[in-house]
Amino acid sequence: MPRTKIGVSTVKHLAWLTRIDLTDKEAREISKQLSRILEYFNKIDEVDTSGVEPLYHPLEMQKVARSDEPAPFPADEILKIVPSKKGRYVKAPKIV
């Protein structure tokens, strides 16, 4: 069933899932905005799509298999863009 509202608690849950910190004020504002957009999206419910296949990709896909040959990219070039590192390692916060 289509939904008509995205409440503040749903917004906060989505913010957690997507790892975007939101203040309470932002969450309230976004809840209003998303609810209004969703209400507009619900218009698609009027269309009878029974028996219609979904179209995930506009044109037919072609075969793209190629021989499995590595094409290495110089690691030093990539390390240049890392903002924080130790030696040749990327520095990141603790995971566990």
């Binding site: 939904r3 999206f41 698609i44 269309v47 799509t49 219609v52 296949e53 979904p54 179209l55 506009p58």
Partner: peptide
Amino acid sequence: GVYYLKAQKIRNILK
């Protein structure tokens, strides 16, 4: 199903 899948079906109707 209500949003994503339905939208992709409408995409096919449009095509």
